[in-house]
Simulated scan of single mutants.
Amino acid sequence: MENKRFLLILGGIGVLLLIPAVPMQFSNEGNWKPFDFKTMGFLLLGTGLLCVVVLRAVKSLIARLIPCGGILLVLLVIWAELAVGILG
């Protein structure tokens, strides 16, 4: 079961990183560099693994949703800061 979750996370990261990669092949609108893909892959992997740790450690549905929601919120804030600099 643990390997399936890990493979699902890796597959999801691959699919999410294809979203900006495919249009970049046909247009000059997106300009992600390899560093950008590595950074986003690291953030997505860290988020996925932290959520798996929460899912393994906590049994109650509500107690799972609150930390995972917080982890996702932190991901979104970091992503927005890296993208457009919303905090400063």
Rank of each mutant, 00 (worst) to 15 (best):
Ile9Tyr: 00
Glu29Thr: 13
Leu45Tyr: 09
Trp32Tyr: 14
Ile78Phe: 08
Ser27Arg: 07
Gly48Asn: 02
Gly69Asn: 01
Lys33Gln: 13
Leu45Phe: 14
Leu82Trp: 05
Met1Leu: 14
Asp36Lys: 02
Leu49Asp: 02
Gly70Ser: 02
Asn31Cys: 10
Gly12Cys: 07
Thr39Cys: 07
Gly48Glu: 00
Ala57Ser: 13
Ser27His: 08
Ile9Glu: 00
Leu82His: 09
Gly30Cys: 04
Arg5Phe: 10
Ala57Thr: 11
Glu29Leu: 14
Val74Cys: 12
Thr47Met: 06
Gly46Met: 10
Val52Thr: 04
Trp79Phe: 15
Leu44Asn: 00
Gly69Lys: 01
Leu76Arg: 06
Leu55Gly: 10
Ala63Gly: 12
Phe42Ser: 10
Leu7Lys: 11
Met40Asn: 11
Gly14Ile: 00
Leu8His: 07
Gln25Ile: 13
Ser27Glu: 06
Asp36Gly: 08
Asn3Glu: 12
Leu73Glu: 01
Leu55Met: 12
Ala83Glu: 12
Ile13Thr: 08
Ile71His: 01
Gln25Pro: 00
Val53Ala: 15
Thr47Lys: 00
Leu73Ala: 15
Arg56Cys: 03
Val77Leu: 15
Leu16Ser: 09
Pro34Cys: 09
Leu87Tyr: 12
Phe42Ala: 15
Leu10His: 04
Lys4Thr: 09
Met40Ala: 15
Ala83Met: 05
Lys33His: 13
Lys4His: 06
Phe6Gly: 03
Leu50Ile: 10
Gly85Gln: 06
Ala21His: 03
Ile62Ser: 07
Arg56Phe: 10
Gly12Trp: 04
Lys59Trp: 01
Ser60Tyr: 11
Arg56Lys: 14
Asn3Ser: 14
Ile19Gly: 02
Val74Lys: 03
Pro20Val: 05
Leu87Phe: 15
Ala80Met: 13
Cys51Val: 08
Lys4Ala: 13
Leu8Met: 04
Asn28Gly: 15
Phe35Ile: 12
Leu43Val: 10
Thr39Asp: 05
Val58Asn: 06
Gly12Phe: 02
Leu73Trp: 13
Arg5Met: 10
